[in-house]
Design a protein around this nucleic acid. Structure first.
Lengths: 238, 238
DNA sequence: ACTCACTATGGAACGACGTTCCAAGATGCG
DNA sequence: CGCATCTTGGAACGTCGTTCCATAGTGAGT
């Protein structure tokens, strides 16, 4: 032993009902959902599982791995069960709803693009593009745009979960905007101010869906044989 | 004093050439650019400025504020100088290049949507939508889609900066995908595998631009009077 | 010129985190 | 039934953001 040890009784060895990786992930999700990302620590997790941090490390390599597994668990459940024959738009909205229900997912998905959870989303989106009529040589671009849209919205969403509810989103954004503009820039951000003004009766889901529709409408201009008088779609090259 | 103090000479009071908030932010940006996000700590910052952590806190409220200020500094510089009459597409690519040059910006921008740096981007994008012919009642949706696209791409970019260069992105993604699929799911992610295969000769900037074009093409279907045979654009509502 | 309230400084200390270490109990195989 | 092996859980480690505070420089008032 390293140093002081009182008379507190410990009982190492093999006890309890297993302490498995999946059980740890499940407990982590519960903490994340109930108390937010900051509340998930190895100490809080150990306490909830009535164990020590060291024991957890025998089933999980690191906190990153734990978070990735938690995200993958939720995404996999959605992707597997939800509407197997749904179109891309429906799938995108289901992704939004998932992120809306688990705010911490936003931060987590943005953390590592190659994690399982993100790959599952890419796969689910990508698979449906052929059916949607997106030509094969544009599917990667469309899929990446849709996934970026999810990740972007997810980030906003996760962050807005961190703003104290007492303030209210509208008030906050206005406050921040005012503060910023007042630094010798008053009336310098008219667009932002206008956007903040309509934030009170603002529906994030509707706006997310509008973004999805923009991308899909753009994809449609690549898809169908261009009608005679169609506005020339901008080519994809840089 | 709290406890031990050797014979090391300290010299409090007012010395040096100022130690201003802007100087601190500038030093922070240098550390972030040169050594990455993890390298920026109050200790490393204090060392570089030949001061202590406490002194920094007299000019900067917290690390969050410091990061927001650093991001705002870079974004403000770009927004102010770069191509004042450029169209949205050009502006978007300039934003991409900025994020590409400062990988930590990706993580930072995703952290808080109401921070100054993000608001500046929203403003710069939004202001140009009217000129681009986007009808007023769709400008917020288009702006938000474009900003989400930036944030999504930024997140991916920032994360890819953290992957060890020795591995290489293509190899990594393939490895991860293989690993994931091999868990009783081999050949379950065909789209991702196909995408990983073309990742070797893959241009992030081109793909980002393609996404921008998709959104703008979608916006164009809302804009112009629909040509006689135009495919019915999907309405924006949910 | 001198005082003195005030501000800036910088290093020690604090509490919490992710992670590592390890003594010891439980398990299963021979 | 002995013993190698795995599991447990709590102490310890190093680092981080942040707070504290004794002190030194500054400038306004006299």
């Amino acid at each position: 032993m390293r140093e002081t040890e009182s008379e507190g009784e410990r009982h190492p060895g093999r006890r309890r009902e297993a302490l498995s990786a999946s059980g740890i992930v499940r407990a982590a999700i519960e903490i994340l959902d109930a108390e937010g990302e900051d509340a998930l620590t190895f100490r809080s997790l150990a306490k909830r599982l009535s164990t020590g941090a060291g024991a957890i490390y025998h089933h999980v390599a690191s906190k990153d791995e734990l978070l990735e597994a938690a995200a993958a668990e939720l995404v996999a459940a959605i992707v597997a069960t939800a509407t197997p024959d749904a179109d891309v738009r429906t799938l995108m909205l289901e992704a939004f709803d998932l992120i809306d229900a688990h705010r911490w997912l936003g931060s987590q998905l943005a953390r590592a693009p190659w994690q399982a959870a993100v790959l599952l989303v890419v796969e689910a989106v990508g698979e449906r593009l052929a059916v949607a009529g997106v030509p094969e040589d544009h599917q990667f671009d469309v899929a990446s745009a849709l996934v970026h849209h999810i990740l972007g919205a997810a980030g906003q969403h996760a962050a807005s979960a961190r703003v104290p509810l007492a303030v209210g989103r509208s008030g906050l954004l206005k406050t921040v905007a005012d503060d910023w503009t007042s630094r010798a820039r008053r009336d310098q951000l008219p667009f932002v101010r206008a956007m903040a003004r309509q934030l009170a009766d603002h529906d994030d889901r509707r706006q997310f869906a509008a973004g999805v529709d923009l991308i899909l409408a753009g994809a449609a201009t690549l898809t169908r044989p261009a009608p005679p008088h169609a506005p020339t779609p901008r080519p994809t090259g840089s």
